[in-house]
Design a binder for these strands. Structure first.
Lengths: 156, 156
DNA sequence: GTAAATTATTTCAAGCTTGAAGTTTCATAA
DNA sequence: TTATGAAACTTCAAGCTTGAAATAATTTAC
């Protein structure tokens, strides 16, 4: 047990606050479960998975800064994760002729094959973890989440 | 711009997958914004805020393990955050007579005062960031999030 | 009563994450 | 040109996070 019965907060704005708390708890629990399974079954991590998922959609590769923007994490962060993926042979950096500051980052053949397997498992896990949500309900929830996205997106 | 036009994925389960992606992006963007503001305006962090928020509701304090369960983070994690809060004088550990393994963790007077101020700002930030959601819509979304919680909650 | 199992917590190494500072390369313009 | 500034990355220190191992105290089973 934890922390006794809470007095339900009330007042203006409390419903938004409650929504935020739920949203956060939902994504944290699901993330924790995914992280655990990725570790157990594929000996990898969520950040590595995220990077590979981003790259998988774009065979020609992405710039580090695009990767960072897309994943909503800092530049330095991506550097470290990509370093590790490179050392595992799943990702490659390719210097570009045009601009020597940048490098195209892409999945290797091996990385691409590995990701396809993990992604299939990942999708079925999501199906399982969100099993209580009908496909129809999922679409409506997605729509509602979209509808208030503009309020903070592209802020930082 | 990033990563060209994506082919919209389709097939069984794709709507749940898309919902998960939206959920994750929503909570990550909001989290990033909150973290930034907590740092800028109060020189603190989200994990510290979370711990203080949990303790604020329970004047008599919580056990480390309850804190960890409540916040959905590991035991060792809480130890570090509480250590830092203690060294800042915002939180205190109290040994218990009954069970010498455990200690009650609670906000100090100073911690409680500090938190009240931060929490007020936090709530207004949420109101602002979720401004596009009407209170009514917030209640409905919260309900939908509740409805599929049971599927994974209490798993790990 | 005492050995064994359980529970509460801390410690630790490895990895993730950020924001700031530093490096290299490119673009602009006097 | 060549300085000046901007852009793409990397490096770094500090903090967050996890899972596993270690410690200490309590409970259970015999």
């Amino acid at each position: 047990m934890v922390a006794g019965p809470l007095p339900a907060p009330s007042g203006p704005g409390k419903d938004r606050l409650r929504l935020w708390v739920r949203l956060l708890r939902a994504s944290r629990s699901i993330e924790a479960e995914l992280r655990e399974r990725l570790r157990q079954e594929f000996n990898t991590t969520l950040p590595r998975f995220d990077v590979m998922a981003a790259l998988y959609r774009v065979p020609e590769g992405m710039l580090m800064s695009d990767l960072s923007r897309f994943l909503l994490v800092s530049n330095g962060n991506v550097t470290g994760i990509v370093d590790r993926l490179v050392s595992e042979g799943l990702v490659a950096r390719a210097r570009r002729n045009g601009d020597r500051r940048t490098s195209m980052v892409r999945l290797t053949e091996e990385g691409s094959k590995a990701f396809a397997v993990i992604a299939a498992a990942h999708e079925s896990w999501i199906g399982e973890l969100l099993g209580n949500v009908s496909e129809d309900e999922a679409r409506r929830l997605t729509g509602m989440l979209n509808s208030f996205r503009s309020n903070w997106e592209g802020r930082e």
